[in-house]
């Protein structure tokens, strides 16, 4: 545990010395603020044009940010040889991976907090204030989507041999889950017999962290009815507290599985030298 905390603290320190963290922070804060002020209709509440836009901005930006920061951090350890040094110490792989995850998670949460803090404060002063539930819901969304993609990033950083590979894999995952998702699924699922489309799409949605978090947020903001009669029962269920519990469980399983997998792969490579 002590090792884990040390690794996490080191990771956070390194994270905030990384100019990337600050450029992402500035980018996120600027976009949040810009979109909020462009769309300013006096208040931001429920599922509306403004929240929809902010939500989609976060879906574009945060996964990419988490994927790059996370996978680079692990790939750098290999490239610069600091892992070779660390591995001679009695430091477990689990402490190392989980510690890195924890440290980076804090970096991402700070970035998101600055973005939300600034836009919330300046928005209020400029007459575009957030409703409290909406604000918290969007914040929860941004934090959870960052943490989900950070877990994926750990896996990417583990598999990649260097930063270049990490970039390639990371951007591919980002493109597939954020941009290519609907086009690819529309094309692929179109071949399935109709009764299969809904169950297959539902399962695939659970496997795409961006869609999982986005849909949960839309439903919690009250927009579940827009998904149509096919999903109505689901939407009602998600809107109740059971939905929140299920979402927390899903996010935990996701992060646990991805971080666990990277720990296993890392451990295998370590023991085989």
């Amino acid at each position: 545990m002590r090792h884990l905390i040390q690794v996490a603290a080191r990771e956070t320190r390194l994270g905030f010395r990384n100019p990337w963290a600050y450029s992402f922070m500035a980018l996120f804060a600027l976009f949040m603020l810009g979109l909020l002020l462009i769309n300013a209709q006096g208040y931001v509440q429920g599922y509306s044009g403004t929240t929809g836009t902010l939500l989609n901005l976060s879906v574009y930006l945060l996964p990419l940010m988490a994927l790059l920061l996370g996978s680079f951090s692990l790939a750098t350890e290999k490239e610069e040889g600091s892992w070779e040094l660390l591995s001679v110490y009695p430091l477990s792989t689990a402490s190392f991976i989980v510690g890195k995850y924890g440290g980076l998670a804090l970096v991402l949460i700070v970035i998101v907090s600055v973005g939300f803090g600034l836009s919330g404060l300046i928005g209020s002063l400029a007459g575009a204030s957030f409703g409290f539930q909406t604000y918290v819901q969007l914040l929860v969304f941004s934090v959870s989507v960052s943490l989900l993609y950070l877990a994926v990033a750990m896996l990417v950083g583990t598999i990649a041999k260097n930063r270049w590979q990490a970039l390639t894999i990371g951007v591919s995952i980002w493109f597939f889950t954020v941009i290519g998702w609907a086009p690819i699924l529309l094309a692929a699922l179109g071949f399935l017999p109709y009764p299969l489309i809904k169950p297959v799409l539902s399962v695939l949605t659970l496997l795409n962290p961006a869609e999982l978090a986005r849909l949960f947020t839309v439903v919690k903001l009250g927009g579940g009815s827009i998904m149509g009669p096919e999903y109505y029962e689901w939407m009602l269920w998600v809107k109740r507290p059971t939905g929140t519990i299920a979402y927390i469980a899903a996010v935990t399983v996701w992060i646990g599985a991805a971080v666990g997998a990277s720990q296993l792969i890392w451990e295998r490579r370590r023991s085989r030298g």
Binding site: Q45, S48, F116
Partner: peptide
């Protein structure tokens, strides 16, 4: 301007200040 309100707006401003302070402290 959209008229209907129902959520607390002052509270979200307070939370945004807290978030900023915490982030800066870290």
């Amino acid at each position: 301007a959209v008229q209907a309100a129902g959520e607390d707006h002052g509270l979200s401003m307070a939370v945004s200040i807290m978030l900023l302070c915490a982030a800066v402290a870290i």
